[in-house]
């Protein structure tokens, strides 16, 4: 499974290039593997693979948020997460729609990724050149973020639709409104890790494990949505694997928090005089 590909768990910093390969590679492998296995075997139980791929992309996005916001952008961290998903949703719907019009629905993911990344680069260049941010990694960071947003949207949408065909995506994810859940849960997986862990003692592994944790929660959420659109077996598989992954990463994250905290002290209940 590609979930573990996001972070190696090593205390040393993971290179952004390596994370980009894990993120984009994990997302593409996850989505295409799910699409091929589902269509070849005529089932929908492999949709979880696309959701796992989306988690890998979200971790790459969380790392990009961490790098860009480390410079200080003046606004809250949530703004950049919403920007990532805003760019991602445009890229995703453009990619899937164009692929359908060209008659190759499998190419939609690639078109979405390329458009999103090019648009992210342009927005990064605008931020640096026109607004004068002068953040050296702005272009690179927003390219990653935009790509991560598009991959997260497509991956998690696939876990609801069970098909890469644009018509299925529209009828099962857009028209039902489940895309709003993908949008906000995916946004949280990308923006929440750095928002929760920022500060002078922020550590990359703790932030990214938090990203994996929130991403797993998003898998549970899309699993619940897919109860209405896919077979019950597929939905249950997605929910159970998502919940198990959430528990695993939650325990891991708690261990890292304890490692980085100055002290973990039990304060007990309120004193009797306060009650």
């Amino acid at each position: 499974m590609t979930v573990g590909g996001g972070a190696g768990g090593a205390p040393s910093a993971i290179d952004a290039k390596k994370l980009r390969i894990y993120g984009i590679g994990g997302a593409l492998v996850g989505i295409y593997l799910a699409a091929i296995l589902n269509s070849v075997l005529g089932t929908d139980i492999f949709s979880i693979l696309a959701a796992a791929g989306a988690v890998a992309a979200a971790v790459m996005g969380a790392n990009a948020v961490r790098r860009v916001c480390g410079y200080g952008i003046g606004t809250g961290v949530p703004s950049i997460g919403m920007l990532a998903l805003g760019m991602g949703i445009v890229g995703a719907s453009f990619g899937l729609s164009t692929a359908e019009q060209l008659g190759v629905s499998m190419a939609g993911v690639i078109i979405a990724l390329v458009y999103a990344m090019v648009f992210g680069y342009i927005v990064g260049a605008i931020a640096n050149k026109v607004m004068g941010f002068n953040i050296p990694i702005m272009e690179e960071g927003l390219t990653d973020l935009s790509g991560a947003g598009a991959m997260a949207i497509i991956g998690w949408s696939y876990a609801i639709s069970g098909s890469l065909a644009y018509a299925d995506m529209v009828s099962k994810v857009f028209n039902t409104g489940y895309l709003a859940i993908v949008f906000i849960c995916g946004g949280l997986a990308i923006l929440h890790p750095f928002n929760a862990n920022l500060g002078p003692d922020e550590k990359q592994d703790r932030t990214l494990v938090n990203g994996l944790m929130v991403g797993s929660l998003a898998v549970v959420a899309v699993g619940l949505c897919s109860l209405a659109t896919l077979s019950t077996t597929a939905a249950i598989i997605t929910i159970v694997i998502g919940a198990a992954a959430w528990y695993y990463f939650y325990v891991w994250y708690y261990r890292l928090v304890k490692r980085d905290a100055a002290a973990v002290v039990g304060t007990g209940l309120l004193p009797p005089s306060a009650l």
Binding site: S79, L83, L85, G86, V90, F133, F174, G177, F183
Partner: peptide, 20 residues
């Protein structure tokens, strides 16, 4: 629904650029 979500995407990009 597609138009609304797409419009939100465009809306968010512009709002974030302005807030920066």
């Amino acid at each position: 629904s597609l138009s609304a979500l797409f419009a939100i995407g465009i809306f968010l990009v512009n709002a974030v650029l302005a807030s920066w």
